[in-house]
Design a protein around this nucleic acid. Structure first.
Length: 277
DNA sequence: AAAGCACCCTGTACGC
DNA sequence: TGCGTACAGGGTGCTT
């Protein structure tokens, strides 16, 4: 499932491939993939627009157009943005098709139809509620500590809350907690300064490493880079999806538990839960 | 503020 | 083989 590193990888690929290109036409095959405006206005407004830049905020891809419009894309679970030269073997899951003026196509493919596309002149309407970017310079351990100190809930669901911190999903939340040796059920405001420091570093290091590897592609997952290549980070996952396997650090068997209705993976020996919690 | 749950979807895995 | 059902998951919205 695409999280920050996968979305960043896609955005970089699209930036290299799309800037300067114009949209000649739009074909909408699943209307609910478009949040706003309505499909007719969406297609009409996009035709003739040129891509000025491609960026990312949290798990949103922002395709900035040379008018006052921005195309925001959220891949959710199975969304993909793929470039092709005008044909592809399997069109089954194509939900929206952007026809480019040079004959290529940008294809929004999405098996489970959870992904969403927004065309807006005010991206902040969508992005404004997002928490800090974990890799930004001003997201310091001190700032992270201040934010954690205000929260009484469990740390793992908090890391998944996009209003608290933007971009982490189920995979990297588990990985970051393992890197920091912090148990997922810990109360957020109970973390000691050294734990805050480790978790801050765990989050940033796992995201950086995953971006460097082109993201994570799981066996059954849909994520691919814009050129269709799989990400290589799955081999570096320490705990996610590895129930019963040996912890790379201590060798104990990795456990899977439910936290807030989500599967969470941890090492029961490295990530201890203090008795009072 | 925090937690639980239903919902949106479909492919896959499983039990019978 | 073939059916039915549970499950996975990001985000939203509602309720407790």
């Amino acid at each position: 499932m695409p999280e920050l590193p996968e979305v960043e990888t896609v955005a970089r690929g699209l930036r290299a491939a799309l800037v300067g290109c114009s949209i000649a036409g739009v074909e909408i095959r699943w209307k609910r993939s478009i949040t706003t405006p309505d499909p007719t206005a969406f297609a009409r407004r996009l035709e003739g627009q040129t891509v000025a830049d491609v960026g990312r905020r949290g798990k949103w891809i922002a395709i900035v157009l040379d008018s006052s419009d921005t195309l925001l894309v959220h891949l959710r679970m199975t969304g993909q943005l793929l470039l092709d030269s005008g044909a592809c073997p399997d069109e089954r899951y194509t939900r929206v098709l952007f026809l480019l003026d040079d004959g290529r196509r940008l294809r929004f493919s999405d098996v489970r139809k959870f992904g969403r596309i927004v065309l807006t002149t005010n991206p902040d309407d969508v992005l404004g509620d997002l928490g800090p970017e974990p890799l930004a310079d001003d997201f310091t351990a001190a700032r992270f500590g201040e934010l954690l100190a205000q929260r009484w809930g469990r740390i793992k669901p908090l890391l998944l809350d996009q209003r608290f911190l933007a971009g982490l999903g189920n995979i990297y939340a588990s990985e970051a907690l393992w890197r920091a040796s912090v148990h997922p059920l810990r109360q957020a405001n109970s973390l000691a300064p050294d734990e805050v420091q480790r978790l801050h570093e765990g989050i940033r290091s796992v995201l950086r490493a995953a971006i460097a590897a082109g993201g994570t592609t799981l066996e059954d997952a849909a994520y691919q880079q814009a050129d269709g290549q799989p990400g290589e980070f799955s081999r570096q996952l320490a705990v996610y999806g590895r129930e019963g396997e040996a912890c790379p650090c201590c060798g104990a068997a990795i456990e899977r538990v439910k936290v807030g209705q989500r599967s969470t993976y941890l090492c029961p020996r490295c990530q201890l839960l203090p008795e009072e919690e």
